[in-house]
Simulated scan of single mutants.
Amino acid sequence: MTDRQYCLFMNGRIRNRNIGCKRHDNAYGINGGGTGADRRRADRALYAHMRENGDPLALLVLAFTRLFGWFFFNYHGKPWRGQLVRKLFPGY
C-alpha cells in the first residue's frame, strides 16, 4: 500500500514535503478553511515548513498557493461558501 500524495505537481517524497502539504491541505479543506487571513497563515506555514527543510521550491510554492489557492480554499462566507473546486468538480 502506498502513502497518499498530498503535494500537487511535485514529488512529496523528498525534503519532507508530503507532511507540509498534508497540513496545508487540512488547513484548506473541508474541516479547515475560514477567512482570507486563515488562508494566508496556511500558505505561510507551508512556506516555513519547506524553508526549514531546505527546499529550493519554497518560494515558488508560496507564489503558486497565493495565486491559485483561492480555488481550493474552504471559505466560510465571502466571497463564497465552501471550496470552489468542489462546486465545479463535485467528485474532487
Rank of each mutant, 00 (worst) to 15 (best):
G33H: 00
R81C: 04
F72L: 07
L84I: 09
D55P: 03
N11M: 01
G77L: 03
R23V: 13
N11F: 01
R13Q: 13
L46P: 02
G20P: 01
L62Y: 06
P56N: 04
W80T: 10
N31G: 15
L59M: 12
V85Q: 01
R15Q: 05
M1H: 08
Y75T: 06
E52C: 04
Q83L: 01
G69N: 08
Q83R: 15
L60I: 08
I19A: 13
R40H: 02
R51H: 10
P56L: 09
Y28M: 03
A48R: 14
F72M: 07
A63T: 02
R17C: 13
P90K: 03
E52W: 01
G12Y: 10
R4Y: 02
L46K: 07
F89H: 09
C21N: 04
D55M: 07
I19V: 12
Y75L: 14
Q5I: 09
F68S: 14
L62N: 02
R4M: 08
N53L: 12
P56D: 09
L67G: 06
D3S: 09
R4A: 06
Y92W: 15
A27H: 00
P79D: 07
L67Y: 05
N18M: 08
Y75G: 10
C7V: 05
Y75N: 01
H24C: 06
N11W: 09
N53H: 12
R81A: 10
L8E: 05
Y28D: 01
L60E: 03
F73K: 00
T2K: 13
L84F: 08
K78I: 15
K22R: 14
G69Y: 04
H76L: 12
Y75K: 13
Y92A: 14
L59V: 12
P79F: 05
G77K: 06
W70M: 07
Y6S: 02
R44E: 15
R39W: 01
G54T: 10
D3A: 10
N53W: 12
F64D: 11
